[in-house]
Design a protein around this nucleic acid. Structure first.
Lengths: 112, 112
DNA sequence: CGGCCATGTCTACATTGTAGGCATTGACAG
DNA sequence: CTGTCAATGCCTACAATGTAGACATGGCCG
């Protein structure tokens, strides 16, 4: 019943979009850590990827050739049409949510 | 370990900000339903309010006089300093998340 | 050969999301 | 006066999401 994508899910989805053709597990992990500015474990990302795929918001495929380095072949992800829709919906909701309130974007300019 | 406020939590917090002095349970419920554009149960809101208060992000106080209409006295909420900080942090993260990707805001202008 | 690195996967648990039912009590119809 | 209703807060329960950490695999380098 989770009508809307959660924050972490959005971060993962956006990481895939951001990485484009290079969107595989570990790269996504790094991208998410960067965008969220905090340490994330690999499992967190893979679990979320599994769930997003189960919901058909993303699709994955194993790399064909021998993986250049490392045992397991890389699994590449791409955002499905449904995923784009979900992302856009989440974006609209978040935007609308914040637009209705006057919020000084520079509130923490000194605090942090 | 939930480093960042969830979507629903943000909606509730922002509803309180939006309502100002009139921020009591049911009013918050209505505000959240409006901003999120979907039906929410009363319990959902109260549970979230409890949790936010437990984290000291908001504070509540029962209405003093006899409630004008209805059995239980209204409980009014206000966002605490920590809550403002958390909200602002969430806002920054969400903004940064989306800013890094070129996203056509009007993507669904036809679709929906 | 042996440890190291990159990569994906599994299990487990904490936190958040969300529904629906219940209790209380003034107002109002009959 | 009595029953129904509306407004309000609260409690329990469960589903979904967030998140960590251990583990398996197999090239690579010394």
């Amino acid at each position: 019943m989770a009508e809307v994508l959660g924050t972490f899910e959005q971060a993962v989805l956006l990481a895939i979009v951001h990485l484009g053709a290079d969107a595989y597990g570990r790269a996504i992990l790094h991208q998410v850590q960067t965008s969220l500015r905090r340490n994330i474990s690999a499992g967190s990302v893979y679990t979320t990827l599994d769930r997003l795929e189960a919901r058909a918001l993303i699709a994955s495929s194993l790399a064909d050739g021998t993986p250049a380095r490392g045992g397991r072949p890389r699994r590449y992800y791409k955002v499905a049409a449904e995923g784009v829709r979900a992302l856009d919906e989440a974006h609209q909701i978040m935007t609308a949510l914040w637009k209705s309130v006057k919020w000084p974007t520079n509130a923490r300019k000194v605090a942090l």
